[in-house]
């Protein structure tokens, strides 16, 4: 017996899988290294790259919409920094799942399936796509899948996706100058001297040159 929930899931999962199958059929996904469309072993290291510069981005508009909503739930704006979307995390995730390398190729089905699952779950629970839910509704879904060790068995796969998606979002966000500033990273500037931590701080921590 196939219920409505399962049908929607199959439908969405199948839709998400199509680009992957197309790529596989074209011999791109399974290509052995060096990848034909990677940056090669001698890329220009001083130029500024944007997602899509080296290999094409592949998320559909619908997938990007869900991806955007989800990364903004994971890292929303607060008084110290903007949301994930605004520092290019969606473009980064698109770049990641479209990349020709083994680690990223392994993540691609997890992310695509997961985005499809997220919309299917939103449709089931609230009859709207995830991006159209209000914040409490989005949290209701995320609360069930946000921590693998505590997720119910039926959410195990979704929780695995969420963990992966969160680490992509976190990695994509905090590796930008905006993320650096949020964390209080103040390096990457040349200086004529380096004195180490202030003595007062060391003393407070019970540390120092004489300890």
């Amino acid at each position: 017996m196939t219920d409505r929930r399962t049908t929607i899931k199959w439908m969405l999962a199948a839709a998400a899988a199509i680009p992957l199958l197309d790529r596989a059929a074209a011999g791109e996904v399974t290509a052995s290294l060096p990848a034909p469309n990677g940056y090669g072993s001698d890329p220009n290291l001083t130029k500024v790259y944007r997602p899509g510069d080296v290999w094409p981005l592949t998320l559909t508009a619908a997938q990007r919409r869900t991806a955007t909503a989800l990364c903004n739930v994971i890292l929303p704006a607060d008084d110290r920094s903007p949301n994930a979307e605004s520092v290019g995390v969606v473009d980064f995730i698109d770049e990641w799942v479209s990349a020709p390398y083994p680690r990223q190729l392994a993540d691609r089905p997890i992310v695509l399936e997961g985005l499809a699952w997220t919309d299917a779950e939103a449709l089931l629970r609230f009859e709207k796509y995830f991006a159209d839910l209000d914040t409490p509704q989005q949290h209701a879904i995320c609360d069930d899948i946000c921590y693998e060790p505590k997720a119910e068995a039926k959410f195990a796969r979704a929780a695995q996706f969420f963990a992966r998606y969160r680490s992509l979002t976190v990695g994509g966000f905090y590796s930008t100058p905006t993320g650096h500033k949020d964390l209080g990273y103040i390096g990457n500037v040349p200086s004529s001297r380096f004195d180490g931590p202030p003595l007062a701080l060391l003393r407070k921590l019970g540390l120092g040159p004489s300890s």
Partner: peptide, 23 residues
């Protein structure tokens, strides 16, 4: 002197600069 990426931040690299089999 010409080729070293000195102050580039990870977001200026493909894949935020993570390792790949090519790097």
């Amino acid at each position: 002197e010409q080729e070293t990426p000195m102050f580039q931040t990870p977001d200026q690299a493909p894949l935020r600069g993570v390792s790949t089999p090519e790097k």
